[in-house]
Design a protein around this nucleic acid. Structure first.
Lengths: 338, 338
DNA sequence: GTGAAAGCGCTAACAC
DNA sequence: GTGTTAGCGCTTTCAC
């Protein structure tokens, strides 16, 4: 490996000068040029490990997401990456697999590698422990999910509003027995979406005097395809099955659609509304109504906030909330369109 | 930050002893215990940057993939991760976005961070330059795509065989005007799949005396949804459009299906066979025939090979080829099933 | 089995 | 502007 010493010797200057050239500090043009040329000849590239050790910080940021196979998070990752690239930060992606232990390992790595900062979609609202990195003063931005009590910048989705809009749309379309497949208990995103559902349902009962939905109309899944399938199957097994369902994430919607089909049912006779776009939804017949999430912008915003912190901003922690937008398509068009 | 010095002082031993405790070298049980306890109390964790600088190697491997939004690569990533975890290696994922410049940046980072090794699905067969890392003696495993002339271990898919099987299946199903949507020119995976198509088509002509397919029956796309749509549209615009199409990757299949639908056509009247499973294909009606790729196993195998190299194996470079398997479903069931 | 000391490659403080 | 020097936190000789 070529070191800064080798270049210095070959160019007839001190190591400090070489360092300055590579860090954009003031060096006479002529010598700078000579250093650059010798460096190129020798194939020299600064050793980031040494640099990190010395500066006690790196030019890499960690992005920790809970499910790399969920397109929502990959779109988010692209947003982070695109923004980071603009200022020469590199992104390394870590998949916590919704597992707090794995997540903890990645957080320790981020700390130990002295990354410049971390963007995290936490695996758990209660058990994710950001102190590992926060104690070292490392900037952290929470995205999509904010661990309880974490004093960090956050970029969130207006889940409750999205849940309300979705439920209201199902009722307006004429569905009467509207169920909900929520995410894991304790997941903040799921709970907020569910709260939106509950609040609109309660308002509706108050206005119309209709009875409360039967027990079991709220099922909990695991945010994966299988969980959605099981939850839908459970709903269909009820004595009075729902005529529409609001599903709290995209992957569970896929499972729910499969269960529906297995039971010989199809939207929109049973209405289906997904929180979060199902990828390639455009191929589905009937097309799928969904609450669109700004996944890419979530990533961009998170990266921008992190960069401000890395640059040294010390203002109090901020939360940015991005709005969802409801896409009305065929799967909620009861009675063949209106 | 607590350092090894702090622990040593607090435990009344030398830094060397603390180091030995954390590296599993022989230390008297009693002292080892004391060190471990003080370390825990002080919240000490070894600084990986310093360790890397000293040992000149890290416990992190880089995984460079060309498209993080393609489920094939995310499944592969999981395979790599699961295997790496087993031996305490951590994986950082880099998305080259099919862009050789970005890829080069990530390779330099891998080199500069002195990662333990790299697994790469190369962005280009010709322009991907592994010398950046190979020159430093860093172990590299190519997966899915092998850059020309690269002397590294590789884990590949039997693309030609898959292409042959796919094409033969379309012909056996009774389709006669079979077209192919290939990937970018120069992509080895695409070229091999195309070669499989061509070889079976040529054999078939030889046996049956049927005329050669018209010009334009082989279209090139970009391995993304849009490319597939454009290619399919071009095929449909031909004077004598095909009655079946073999699409060389999963994302382009999505686009092709969209173009087909836009034209008022549906499989299986036009047969569609995808190379690589489309995620959530189970939701599609008609269900989609596909050449299944062992993405997860590709990842596992690549990680296993890399680990052998990291452990010091010096045997000559190996290539492992994994087989595909054809899934016959409804989209190629001409005339309503057979 | 253990400690002292050197040094991985780099940057920051200081003197010039 | 530039060189000299010290040291980031760790591992690894080499004595003992």
């Amino acid at each position: 490996m070529t070191t800064i010493q080798d270049v210095a010797r070959a160019a007839g200057v001190s190591p400090a000068t070489v360092s300055r050239v590579f860090n954009g500090e003031r060096v006479t043009a002529e010598r700078a040029e000579r250093v650059r040329r010798t460096a190129a000849e020798l194939g020299y590239a600064p050793n980031r490990v040494a640099r990190s050790l010395r500066k006690q910080q790196a030019s890499v940021i960690g992005l920790i997401i809970p499910d790399i196979e969920n397109p929502f998070f990959t779109a988010l990752a692209r947003g982070v990456e695109d923004t980071a690239q603009e200022t020469n930060l590199s992104v390394v992606l870590c998949n916590s697999d919704e597992d707090v232990a794995k997540e903890t390992r990645y957080l320790s790595i981020a700390a130990a590698e002295q990354m410049a900062g971390v963007i995290i979609a936490a695996a758990s609202r209660n058990r994710t422990d950001l102190s590992l990195v926060r104690d070292r003063g490392m900037p952290v931005v929470a995205v999509d999910r904010l661990p309880r009590g974490a004093d960090v910048d956050a970029v969130m989705v207006d889940n409750q509003h999205g849940g309300e809009e979705a439920t209201a749309h199902l009722l307006a379309a004429g569905y009467r027995r509207v169920a909900c497949i929520a995410g894991p208990e304790g997941a903040s995103t799921s709970e907020e979406r569910l709260a939106g559902y509950r609040s609109v349902m309660a308002d509706h009962r108050r206005e119309t005097g209709e009875p409360a939905p039967p027990a079991g109309y709220v099922q909990h899944g695991d945010f994966r395809v299988e969980g959605g399938r099981a939850a839908m199957a459970a709903l269909l097994a009820l004595p009075d099955p729902p005529d529409a369902v609001f599903v709290a994430n995209n992957l569970m919607t896929v499972g729910a659609l499969q269960a529906l089909r297995d039971a010989g049912l199809e939207p929109p006779s049973t209405g289906v509304l997904s929180f979060g776009d199902v990828p390639w939804a455009s191929l589905l017949r009937p097309s799928l109504s969904a609450v669109d999430l700004p996944a890419y912008d979530l990533g961009r915003t998170a990266a921008a906030l992190l960069q401000e912190r890395i640059a040294g901003s010390r203002i109090p922690a901020r939360s940015v909330v991005l709005r969802t937008s409801l896409q009305r398509r065929e799967s909620t068009r009861r009675g063949g369109g209106f």
